[in-house]
């Protein structure tokens, strides 16, 4: 291999990558805010008794789970302004696209977690006269949230990785900053290596924590 790696230009422009990273983290944080709240609402709809509530929620979840995120992001950017005759800040658009996508995945996580609460717990609540909100608040929710936690965290960090897609619609995130820098410096390998390392450095600890939590749950159950 005759190529001679030079990271000098990348180090010199690390601040540009830093600015991009801030944007990526903002996108991720806000998308998670939407994902955690809206996702829970959608999960409740998924379990509604009325099919009129259930059907649209299920349709939303399936549409977002069964199409590429890239298609979703591009669709949001091009179609929302036309359809609703409204031009919002690209950043807001990015947050919305990623947030709604995350909500669909989290809804499924919440739903599975609620379903994982053993029937016996409901029976026990009935036998003890615990009903309505008390039952949800003190028995079902603690159980379900604990079961959902690893999934929600995994989804949350996945959206950090997926946020790289908004670079393709010119939001100045970490990926976008990397692309710019790679072109400016003619050093794509070094630049993308550093960018990948940054993404990895943030994702890896979270997935490590998830593994720990899952291992602990496994132990408790065994």
């Amino acid at each position: 291999m005759s190529y001679d790696l030079q990271f000098f230009y990348v180090w010199q422009n690390l601040d540009k990558l830093g600015q991009g990273l801030v944007v990526s983290l903002e996108l991720t944080g806000l998308a998670n805010l939407i994902g955690l709240t809206l996702g829970f609402g959608v999960a409740l709809l998924l379990r509604a008794k009325s099919a009129l509530l259930r059907a649209p929620a299920a349709a939303m979840v399936e549409v977002f789970r069964c199409t590429p995120v890239l298609v979703q992001v591009v669709w949001f950017f091009y179609c929302v302004p036309i359809l609703f005759n409204l031009f919002i800040d690209p950043m807001v658009m990015g947050v919305l696209a990623l947030g709604v996508n995350l909500a669909a995945f989290n809804a499924e996580g919440y739903r599975a977690a609620i379903q994982s609460v053993p029937r016996e717990q409901y029976d026990a609540c009935a036998a003890l006269g615990l009903t309505g909100w008390t039952r949800i608040r003190h028995v079902i929710l603690p159980h379900a949230l604990r079961a959902a936690l690893p999934v929600l965290m995994t989804n949350g960090i996945t959206i950090f990785q997926q946020s790289a897609l908004v670079a393709l619609v010119a939001i100045p995130d970490l990926m976008y900053a990397g692309k710019m820098l790679a072109t400016e410096t003619y050093r794509p390998i070094e630049t993308y290596t550093v960018v990948a390392a940054i993404y990895f450095a943030i994702s890896a600890p979270v997935s490590l924590i998830v593994q720990r939590i899952e291992a602990r749950f496994d132990r408790v159950q065994a």
Partner: peptide, 25 residues
Amino acid sequence: VELFRGTPVLIQLFWIFYCLPLLLG
């Protein structure tokens, strides 16, 4: 495994598009 699960697929794609020619010659 951790590297490819911990980075965006988009950057994996870019990285390989630029690196592969160099690695292969």
